[in-house]
Nucleic acid binder design. Structure first.
Lengths: 97, 97
DNA sequence: TATCTATTTAGAATTTTTTCGAAATAGGAG
DNA sequence: CTCCTATTTCGAAAAAATTCTAAATAGATA
């Protein structure tokens, strides 16, 4: 939910790779697990839960699968935060952190 | 230097606050310490070293002070990474992670 | 109903990050 | 040269994040 949670979530390379996978298409938890041979299903599930808490992905259930999907809108917020440093935006704007 | 180091560096709220402070003006280590009453000078120094490693700040010495200054250009790279998810940029572009 | 498949949750172990106090470094001032 | 001020580095302790295996959940199928 909060900005800090989002930044923490995207700070991990494996979680960023999960986001990249989901950029192309929505995937079930099992399909995501297959992309990480070095991690157990439980660990991938843990990472997905962090991404979900940060609103970076959403889940929907179908049969006994859980599908994950990217929520692109959160990235706008991060870009806005960055923009305050590049001098590219109105500097009077409210900003998280 | 690497993208991962940068993302790790900005994932911490206290380090983000240091960047925000440096957005306005360059500050000495001691001046930055004063903004964080709950942290020791050693701890602030540790955080500054991470920001420096991530190229988010640069340092310059004057007398026995060390001044820190923001390096805004790194934020462009983060924004570019975010943009691939918002559909706002050329998707054929190479991207870290 | 019994069982199989997909996934998460729980609990514990490991690893990484953060933090501090004390000691080291470095340069300026007397 | 000696002391003082600013800051970092070191080593250890504490806190947080990551990971695993095993057990729990939930829905589908036989």
């Amino acid at each position: 939910m909060g900005f800090s949670e989002t930044m923490k979530a995207i700070s991990d390379p494996q979680r960023r790779q999960m986001l990249t996978l989901l950029k192309q298409e929505r995937l079930s938890a099992g399909e995501i697990v297959q992309h990480f041979p070095s991690l157990s299903a439980a660990t991938v599930s843990y990472h997905l839960s962090l991404l979900k808490k940060a609103s970076l992905i959403t889940e929907s259930k179908y049969k006994n699968f859980i599908y994950y999907e990217l929520n692109a809108s959160v990235f706008e917020e991060i870009m806005l935060w960055c923009a305050q440093f590049t001098g590219g935006t109105d500097e009077t704007q409210d900003q998280a952190d």
